[in-house]
Design a protein around this nucleic acid. Structure first.
Lengths: 378, 378
DNA sequence: TTGAAAGCGGTACCAG
DNA sequence: CTGGTACCGCTTTCAA
């Protein structure tokens, strides 16, 4: 007896199906509560492959080209054919295959978003804005995260480009300007967090310097002179701008900058907490704290709380960003508002225009101080 | 003189290019600070279309099929050819066109994630978890948001399916179970927030009831008997489970449930704030508040703060979810932790297994009480 | 092990 | 306005 050289695939399907079945029932700990997993060959019936243009065309008695034309409005189609096609589409429940469209048109109708953290309220707002702008345009966002690490960012962007995104939205990050410009050879890019311009690149940032000035002005106007500053990461341009705003505003009012009042933070709650602990330990006199961002302010506020120092009665606190939750801290935090959702929308609209090769019309929104209850006049 | 019927496209290109140019310089308010926008025909040079398999094949002196085989490891390729191909790939900087691969293989190497809000810390953690699980697998997440609205959810899912996602991760939401099961005909689905099982569906939720019981037990163990509860939306199953846990635990300890101590909230800070204002206005005695989620607890805490009621000295507060920020509220919030990142990872791994037709191995994580400083013994 | 060739599902050009 | 047809870039038989 000879074994046939090429055993039919049907045979093997059956074999693996039975193996799978056997495995499921024999594996210890795989009780009935786990879902039964059918082998694909047992599921074929439920897979209803969607119709194609050709089938629609055949049913409607026209050519595939005509169906395509109707669907895309590329050309006029006579009324009777339109009706026939529409009926056929209805009957076959036809849905165009985006994958095929993509291949043909060379565009994936997708814009990549590079964020730094999926779990950050700061970026989430901006992403929501981009998403909002993309809504109803046929473009979908493909979101990846670079975790504030240049290498990772570059790698993720490669991924996006491999997937042929039509445009790229970069939210901050540590990439070099030159890298971004280089990337823009391959895909139009808008970037938030730096001012950048190129043939297929447009970047803008909010005026962090100005925001910081406003915050410190506010404090000074309320009689504060001994104002501590908890800085952000020293390699972060926004953090640096905020520090500069703090310094310059102090100088403008003839207040001598005291080195001990500037603490290093890292844009996180724990950084703020530790900074204030150091500040307290230094015995330096201060009546107010300006935190480089809201998270830092939260941490600072907790450190004060632990020492029984009340806000704003004993110490005033100002933050930066205006995260949602800053409205509900105790007391509600006075902070510099960054309109991130708005920023996101603008980014989304901008990348869409770039993709469509329309000229940009952009005005950059401004940060603004939102006064709540964490500052007291002294 | 006759005008040619079909004017060359080159001609029109030139015309539109000049129009665009003219427009840019003539539009008032379009100063030099706006980026100059070149017409596509002026950019062709910078667009470096990536090489194709065929070109690689030609350069390497082999067939396209062989290149494909090498790339996918589908079959053995002789050493000399491999070298030639690798060199050609290097030289041409070849990158496979994912779009074409997608069309051919019928899979987009994409999993859709339906979240309810892009800007919510709760969902963000779960999404980060899914993203983490997908990392390095070749699958990318396509994220859409349903905004807690069944219609919108259904619509967004249609979008995902049109884009031929290979799998779907649904984070909570208001879809009917039946709808989800129906959808699973077209694509495997894992869903968080409900217990669901089907041939291509797997859903699980955390034990909200149990979590709520733990929270109330904790309060009772600290001597509290007049415990207020701020409920979540009454159409939300998690909210209901938490309410049930509250009621049952009270009953278990022989504490009479008082109707006035159960306030309606909506899972938001403002809901919590208003609820406590109503509670205070009702003059009902209470020594503790159990909030249906952390956001609600934040609002409740602010309402107490406004009245000068201290936490935990006068009133204890317990939340649910354990958002990041709960660690830094004043005082840090005692709350029921939902391991959302972990949940996200499991969801991601699960959908991957379903896509690959591997059997599932799932154990559901448990919520756990994390004790911080917002509860005092009385 | 390898090459030729047939599509995957659309779109767009051409001629009529 | 419409149908025929080539092709987008890749994978996968089939046959050698």
């Amino acid at each position: 007896m000879r074994v046939p050289e090429r055993v039919s695939t049907t045979f093997w399907r059956a074999v693996t199906a039975w193996l799978l079945l056997y495995w499921q029932f024999s594996t210890p700990g795989r009780g009935p509560e786990l879902p039964f997993w059918p082998h694909p060959c047992m599921r074929k019936a439920s897979e209803r492959p969607t119709a194609t243009v050709h089938e629609v065309a055949r049913v409607a008695g026209v050519s595939a080209a005509t169906v395509s034309r109707l669907l895309n409005g590329t050309a006029k189609v006579s009324d009777d054919k339109r009706q026939a096609i529409e009926q056929a589409i209805e009957r076959l429940n036809y849905k165009p295959n985006v994958l095929a469209q993509n291949l043909k048109t060379g565009s994936s109708r997708t814009v990549g978003i590079l964020t730094q953290s999926l779990a950050s309220g700061y970026f989430a707002d901006a992403m929501a804005g981009v998403d909002d702008a993309l809504q109803g345009t046929g473009y979908a966002p493909l979101i990846v995260s670079g975790h504030w690490h240049a290498d990772e960012e570059a790698e993720r962007i490669e991924l996006l480009i491999a997937r042929r995104v039509d445009g790229l939205v970069i939210l901050s990050g540590n990439l070099e300007d030159a890298q971004i410009l280089a990337l823009s050879e391959q895909v139009p890019i808008v970037v938030f967090g730096r001012d950048l311009q190129g043939p297929r690149t447009y970047g803008f940032s909010l005026d962090n310097y100005r925001g910081a000035c406003d915050a410190v002005e506010h404090l000074v106007a309320h009689g504060h002179r001994d104002i501590a500053f908890i800085a952000g990461p020293s390699d972060h341009r926004d953090a640096l701008a905020r520090l500069a705003g703090y310094r310059d505003t102090l100088a403008k009012h003839g207040i001598k900058a005291q080195r001990k009042l500037v603490l290093q933070g890292d844009f996180s709650e724990s950084g703020g907490l530790r900074a204030v602990e150091r500040l307290l330990a230094s015995n330096q006199r201060f009546t107010a704290i300006f935190a480089a961002n809201d998270l830092t302010a939260y941490g600072a506020r907790l450190a004060l709380f632990r020492r029984g120092i009340t806000v704003p009665d004993e110490v005033s606190v100002v933050g930066f960003d205006d995260l949602h939750s800053s409205m509900y801290t105790t007391p509600p935090l006075t902070t510099v508002r960054q309109p991130l959702f708005d920023v996101g929308q603008r980014l989304g609209r901008a990348i869409l225009r770039m993709i469509r090769q329309q000229p940009l019309e952009l005005e950059v929104p401004e940060p603004s101080l939102v006064v709540r209850e964490s500052v007291r006049a002294i």
